[in-house]
């Protein structure tokens, strides 16, 4: 963990790619080596991207040509699978699932950003009794397997009659349950110059003012990174909805996909693959738009995808 700290302190989020002076060209060997590196990278790229390419291409093929056909290119591409997939399943349109996913993801982002920022401010900027203990406990939850929690949490939410609502899936986000984000923001705040808030304190500003009008605006990069990850984690989450949601009308996309697996894997493989593609579109979109934030976030904080 300490490395994350050290890399982060050494290079705050955005300036990860310090320009390195180009290595002086020494001999022809260097060029050959560079070529080798490129060739190898391309091979790895092909392997890494193959499953994705396969998925997209297969979604354009008719069901009976997906398995057993070594060629990637469909003989005649058609969007039929997407039409079937969008029509949904069990009388529920795919848009309903997408809307549920989107709602969960957006509320998760709001909750996570607010609660993590507030918590991080406490840890990074306020000297209060017990701070070290709580911080250590917070870091400890990073290492805690979620298994220990799901059963009692389920029991409590069950007793409260909150099964089959979004509450169990969202409440944790408003209570900063994901220590990764707090950690990320604490690290970021520690690198912000203290002179700013010290000046404000001398002017008589309270913590609330400092947090809202000084810290939050400065934390933009950390907030963006947190938002993107919170969105994607919520979007991909499977276990939470699997445990807590019963009514297909409330299903987010991963559970809807499971319905597809259960009900149409034999009869309509193509639509299932098309649905898989659709479920990944927002994540890929985020990836293309914000890849720098994502990759730098990982580089500095060790965030998992």
């Amino acid at each position: 963990m300490s490395t994350a700290t050290s890399t982060a302190t050494a290079a705050p989020l955005t300036d990860q790619r310090r320009p390195t002076p180009p290595a002086p060209r020494r001999q022809d060997g260097a060029r050959a080596r560079s070529l080798m590196v490129h060739a190898l990278s391309l091979v790895i790229l092909a392997v890494v991207l193959y499953p994705l390419l396969w998925m997209v291409m297969s979604s354009l093929k008719p069901t009976n040509q997906i398995i057993g056909d070594p060629s990637l290119l469909p003989t005649e591409a058609s969007l039929d699978n997407y039409r079937t997939a969008l029509a949904g399943i069990g009388g529920i349109s795919a848009w309903t699932f997408a809307r549920n996913s989107l709602f969960l993801a957006v509320v998760s982002v709001i909750g996570t950003v607010l609660s993590s920022a507030v918590t991080a401010y406490a840890f990074a900027r306020i000297e209060f009794a017990g701070r070290k203990l709580w911080f250590a406990l917070m870091i400890g939850t990073l290492l805690l397997p979620f298994h220990v929690l799901i059963i009692p949490q389920y029991i409590v939410f069950n007793k409260l009659g909150l099964i089959n609502t979004f509450v169990p899936l969202l409440i944790g986000k408003f209570l900063a349950a994901e220590a990764f984000f707090i950690f990320l923001m604490v690290q970021f705040m520690r690198n912000l110059p203290r002179e700013l808030d010290e000046a404000a304190r001398i002017d008589g500003c309270g913590h609330v003012r400092i947090f809202i009008s000084i810290m939050l605006p400065l934390m933009r990069p950390a907030i963006i990174t947190t938002s993107i990850f919170a969105f994607i984690w919520s979007w991909n989450d499977f276990l939470g909805p699997l445990l807590y949601l019963n009514d297909p009308e409330k299903y987010p996309l991963p559970l809807a996909l499971r319905l597809f697996v259960d009900q149409t894997s034999v009869s309509d493989y193509g639509a299932m693959i098309a649905m898989s593609v659709l479920a990944l579109v927002p994540v890929m979109l985020f990836f293309f738009l914000f890849q720098r934030y994502l990759v730098d976030g990982v580089a500095t904080q060790g965030l998992k995808g």
Binding site: S41, P51, I66, R258, M272, S276, L280, Q291, V298, G305
Partner: peptide, 30 residues
């Protein structure tokens, strides 16, 4: 290598974002 490192870095990172998703499990099984 120096050139295009950023590109490869991003491209290789993509599976980490989606690897645990249901979509990829379906693809993997296929």
């Amino acid at each position: 290598g120096r050139k295009a490192q950023g590109f490869y870095r991003s491209a290789f990172y993509a599976p980490s974002l989606i690897g645990a998703s249901v979509s990829i499990a379906i693809v993997w099984k296929a």
